[in-house]
Design a protein around this nucleic acid. Structure first.
Lengths: 141, 141
DNA sequence: AATTTAATTGATAATTATTATCAATTAAAT
DNA sequence: ATTTAATTGATAATAATTATCAATTAAATT
């Protein structure tokens, strides 16, 4: 979980070279339980004294999204994307309406309903996303 | 539903002047059943030979959102906002993963579950949003 | 109805998030 | 150690949105 190239295997499997930056970003994504913006990842790297270009952060995140290693999503009404590790579990988000912080929640009350929807308006249903809004403890003051 | 200033009452109630542009935009929002981007609204107005500045479209939409007359949301992974009339009903969206078109759906399987979540991680739950993904008939070819 | 006043608009510049470009660098295959 | 193709940094470009400010217009007041 910390150190140099812990993600060599994952990267090799995806046909990607194991680089300092990719390993560092995967480390950040792995330990965090909140989805992060590209800029937040960039700042975390800076805090760790890892020099990197913001464009490289975007590029690495996008590459990992295209490989399915990382999931990209967005908060409604915020015009920026957030990224988190794809832990291969069906998940949803809890979003603070104050600070827009996103927290992951497990469980899904929706599977049954989705089956009922099959064929709705001629769509082939492939999945869903549930965002639950609320005010986080910090924003409650 | 068509014509000049059908929304004078709504606008007055919100302390907004009744202008040609605001009425035209409310008309477009009222008749559409799909959420629209600011640009789509702009183009619809153009088709109707209503000369308007794109910045005015954004401004009017934002003003109406702040009054709660219009709802702003966004499709995951698309970095632009969409707007639709606030019909004061609890609603969700069906999004085509091909063309990103959004269609509104009624009904919500979630009310029970939300109650269970009360207090989750110290959040005060205030609402939720459900996006159902699929492939629309057009994108199925 | 004419005048006043404050809100609204258009045109444009500025900003923010993201993506593209391309030469320099680096990982890993040989 | 050398080669080769992938990766990176720096920067420019783009796309969506927001800010600015002078000109225009709605509606309140006379």
């Amino acid at each position: 979980m910390q150190g140099g190239s812990d993600y060599k295997e994952i990267l090799k499997k995806e046909g990607l070279k194991s680089t300092k930056h990719r390993n560092a970003i995967l480390g950040i994504m792995e330990e965090g339980d909140e989805p992060l913006t590209a800029e937040a990842v960039f700042l975390k790297l800076k805090d760790m004294n890892t020099s990197i270009s913001l464009s490289t952060v975007y590029r690495i995140l996008e590459t990992l999204v295209s490989k399915g290693v990382i999931i990209k999503s967005s908060v409604t009404c915020e015009n920026k994307a957030v990224f988190e590790m794809n832990r291969m579990e069906h998940k949803h988000h809890l979003v603070c309406t104050g600070c827009k912080r996103m927290v992951s929640v497990e469980g899904c009350p929706f599977e049954e309903y989705e089956k009922k929807l099959k064929g709705l308006r001629g769509f082939d249903i492939t999945g869903h996303k549930l965002e639950i809004y609320g005010v986080c403890p910090d924003c409650k003051r």
